[in-house]
Design a protein around this nucleic acid. Sequence first.
DNA 1: TATTGTTATACTCTATAACTATA
DNA 2: TATAGTTATAGAGTATAACAATA
Lengths: 176, 176
Amino acid sequence: MTARASPPATDLPQPGDEPFNSRIPGIDYGVLDDLLGYAIRRVQIRLYEDFLAALAPWQITPPRFSALVIIGRNPGLKLTELARIQGIARSGAVALIDSLAELGHVERRPSPTDRRALGLFLTPSGEQSLARITQAVKAHDARMSAALSAKETAELQRLLGKLTGPTEPVSAVPTP
Amino acid sequence: MTARASPPATDLPQPGDEPFNSRIPGIDYGVLDDLLGYAIRRVQIRLYEDFLAALAPWQITPPRFSALVIIGRNPGLKLTELARIQGIARSGAVALIDSLAELGHVERRPSPTDRRALGLFLTPSGEQSLARITQAVKAHDARMSAALSAKETAELQRLLGKLTGPTEPVSAVPTP
DNA sequence: TATTGTTATACTCTATAACTATA
DNA sequence: TATAGTTATAGAGTATAACAATA
């Protein structure tokens, strides 16, 4: 067998990769620069990348973290309820809970009132891990909004909150 | 073959489904309510859902729309450059351009200076379609921010813009 | 030796649909 | 007849890795 003289010609993203640049110099983004949706997407990509990097030691992804917090604050939650809260199918919630159970953070206990159902609970070690994980997530979140003053951060939260209120669905869709 | 007496017992999301409710009454979201990341995610889910519904007649998704706008404003762009701008692998860009070419919106032309490369261009009908598609996207975007005044929308754009500036990467990752 | 577009392949995430045991 | 959890399966979307043509 021959020793390889040079590293293989890999594709774009490398392990220790630089973060995604959502504003390449020299590129005209046109109307995208005016759309709220694209601004949100730019922020979301950056948040997601940093979250994964910061929480990698715990093997925690955003949906896993959300599930842990929600189970912790609403013990005994049914899997179907968790799926509805997270906006995913029940089959996806099963996989999510499976992964958190393998990590030792969550356990299923039979419901005392409904023999079909299971209640979801944090394990004792899951509670402890969640405390540390939450600290890491808070540090990540603070780092992401470091460019904003406390007042600006509060204002941003207020404006984003107004956007998630109930709105009318798409009424009349024009035909192409 | 027997006629089916009742509709099949389908799972959660139905065709004419109600939009995802990111704040279920009676559920304690704990620290999630304080995190910028979760606020962004709530908004992003709503934006994505409405975008898909509003643009379905054109079979346009967010990445397809971004690609159309960027190609339209930067004609002759190479596929590798588009991939870098969108933050996706080159293989993904090939599939993206394939779909836009099938829709008749984009064409590949050989580069006059580099016989390996292709320049990406909107077709004449692609230009016309993009004009109408852009109107639909703008209407969607305006509907999403209808709860905000013009002043608030501008402030939101300003604050989001500050969040996408360059930041230091994750420096020292704590061990679990 | 590196780059461009492409293809092959796999992995993740999501969904739909069916199954079982209960209600 | 409907619901809770599960499983099987398939479709997007993403990635890595290799390839031929060209630089």
